[in-house]
Design a protein around this nucleic acid. Structure first.
Lengths: 136, 136
DNA sequence: GGATAAAGCTGAGGTTACCTCAACATGAGG
DNA sequence: CCTCATGTTGAGGTAACCTCAGCTTTATCC
């Protein structure tokens, strides 16, 4: 019974991943890059180590993702004025519009998946997921 | 609203992945190896290419996973008597018991996650996931 | 007011789980 | 039988992570 629940979960996750990949294709931005863009878009300028925390990855790995985005002029680094060891990362103008566009595309793709549910089911699903996501 | 649904989904998926990783630890079997064991356990002996299909990976990649499992004496290869190009893959005795034990551990870990739901919610979730997993 | 420890980032180099492409053996159809 | 397709694998590549050591800068503690 639970095995079935977990399996069903993985199956849907897989579909969601494919939809997301689809949504990202036009910008050829990798999933991990898009996650970083999302974090910076939602929370604004922050330290590199903070990006790492948000993405649940090691600081060294965040350096790489940010390198890639910087190479594409989607983010920029500047020294943290309050601590000369740290560097702050923020979206560029290009980064802001790209992040927004990607967000919309992703939402549209997700909508295509969740369109199978009527409003009541969506509410139910949201409630159940909320219960599962926190260890209460 | 859908964005929130997708995000909640990813959050729960992440928890489920951590639980699964936890469950696999005692056997130090990688997730992809455990998936292969699961396929062979559920469907029995099959061609390498069939394993690849079940796992949604390229045949070449299945070769690698099976190599690893063979090195650990969990599976064995034998030539397909009906087609000498093909090789059949099956669990060894060790593989059978390991696959069973892993399956149980994973179910137990999943149970720990889904324990947050009462029976009615589980049924609801199962129904909704079923609706989402097929493109009907 | 140094000496010492800790924090923040990155270069170097590794790992995992995938991939493609080409080679090779075998099977199938005209 | 000759050509074409199929099944597996060697060689080599990539993405997204990782650890560890080194450098600079900040904080702490006699």
């Amino acid at each position: 019974m639970e095995e079935t629940l977990a399996e069903a979960f993985w199956a849907v996750t897989r579909r969601l991943r494919l939809h997301t990949r689809n949504a990202l294709q036009p910008w050829n931005v990798s999933p991990s890059q898009s996650r970083a863009l999302g974090v910076l878009s939602r929370h604004g300028e922050m330290r590199l180590s903070a990006v790492a925390e948000h993405l649940h990855i090691a600081p060294r790995s965040a350096t790489e993702v940010i390198d890639d985005l910087q190479r594409r002029n989607l983010v920029e680094r500047r020294p943290d004025p309050s601590d000369r060891r740290a560097t702050l990362v923020a979206l560029t103008a290009d980064g802001v519009t790209t992040a927004r566009a990607i967000d919309e595309a992703r939402a549209a793709e997700a909508e295509r998946l969740f369109a199978a549910l009527d409003p009541a089911d969506r509410t139910e699903l949201a409630r159940i997921l909320r219960r599962l996501r926190d260890p209460n």
